[in-house]
Design a protein around this nucleic acid. Structure first.
Lengths: 195, 195
DNA sequence: GTCTATAGACCGATAGAC
DNA sequence: GTCTATCGGTCTATAGAC
């Protein structure tokens, strides 16, 4: 068995090129929108040429997919953590989920909201099974076994409220800690949970 | 005094060309984002050539400004109406404002949310005095004299929730009346007001 | 106020050398 | 995996006729 650089080697990430591309793309999508971001801009951001980017992704649409999928991965990880947090204590699952989702949104203020509301990505994911599955899972975490069609709308609104508020001009001046505290408190009140 | 077509003649609007441009642009911005919308698309939407559009607005940036300003006009009018509605009865101002803002958002589902969250427009208006003034006014209408940093976060969440929900796939199937009713109920819960 | 025509830059995407 | 070079097409914006 060879000892050199392999796919499983943790010291050297398997695909630095691809993750550098999606990191740069995410930043630029958030700044200029998907439609306003060119492959040229992405390539320049990471210091290579367009052709090098095309070596990793065959089309711009594939890059958009990869960026959005990576963000979905983050949301799924956060839900995993929330479930682990509240393992066994059913009542705490909702509070843990709220705290984790708020953390994620505040930590990534600049990227999250624009990405979530971009019309290109919106159309791409409106009927995406994985996104709908993650939202369902969040819905069950928040309202427990009583989840139904109405609570799904409320969950969608809460997600929109949190992700939209972190970039809103009204809260532009707030530091992260203060914003986190307010968001969690208001979200819990919205869900009729004890603060 | 001549009796023909004048600027004040209500039968023939003074500048149909400009309003047709911003109407078309608003629709296309909402569908493809600002960066994904070209002057060619706007011109085709209203059945003229690019040059005709450039005769009205010298740059694309001017069109973006005009579209966003027109939307701000709408929000200001709605706040005017809400204040008139609740004149003298201080407690009703918030409920009137919620109802009016929800009406505006539902009536213009397709346009409002994307426009509000577009990164290009966001950066253009993040520090715009008029926008911040309108949002502060909304904040005071909603929470009265107790407005502070936390209520601003709540107001931001409410605006984001309403504008995000009206375009959300989970809500896309709802008819306008049902959506209005549900949004008002949820909004009042956000604000801790009696339904 | 609308048109045709065009300039010059940039777009997404590909070919082929190293 | 990165490069140079290039394709055909679209972009913003302008010039000038009607």
């Amino acid at each position: 068995m060879s000892r050199g650089r392999t796919l499983a080697d943790p010291a050297t990430p398997p695909r630095p090129a691809q993750s550098r591309i999606i990191d740069a793309a995410l930043e630029l999508f958030a700044e200029h929108g998907v439609g306003g971001t060119s492959l040229q801009m992405i390539a320049e951001e990471i210091g290579v040429t367009k052709a090098a980017v095309y070596h990793q992704y065959r089309t711009k649409a594939e890059i958009v997919r990869a960026v959005a999928d990576a963000e979905l991965d983050r949301l799924e990880s956060v839900l995993d953590e929330a479930e682990a947090d509240a393992a066994g204590r059913a009542g705490d699952a909702a509070a843990a989920a709220v705290a984790r989702v708020v953390d994620l949104a505040v930590e990534r203020r600049r990227q999250v909201s624009t990405l979530l509301n971009d019309p290109v990505i919106g159309r791409l994911y409106a009927r995406d099974a994985r996104l709908l599955g993650v939202l369902d899972r969040l819905d069950r975490l928040l309202v427990g076994p009583g989840a139904g069609p109405e609570s799904k709308v409320a969950t969608a609104m809460l997600v929109a409220a949190i992700s939209g508020a972190v970039m809103h001009p009204l809260v532009a001046g707030q530091d992260d800690d203060t914003l986190r505290t307010y968001l969690v408190r208001i979200a819990l009140r919205f869900l009729d949970l004890p603060a």
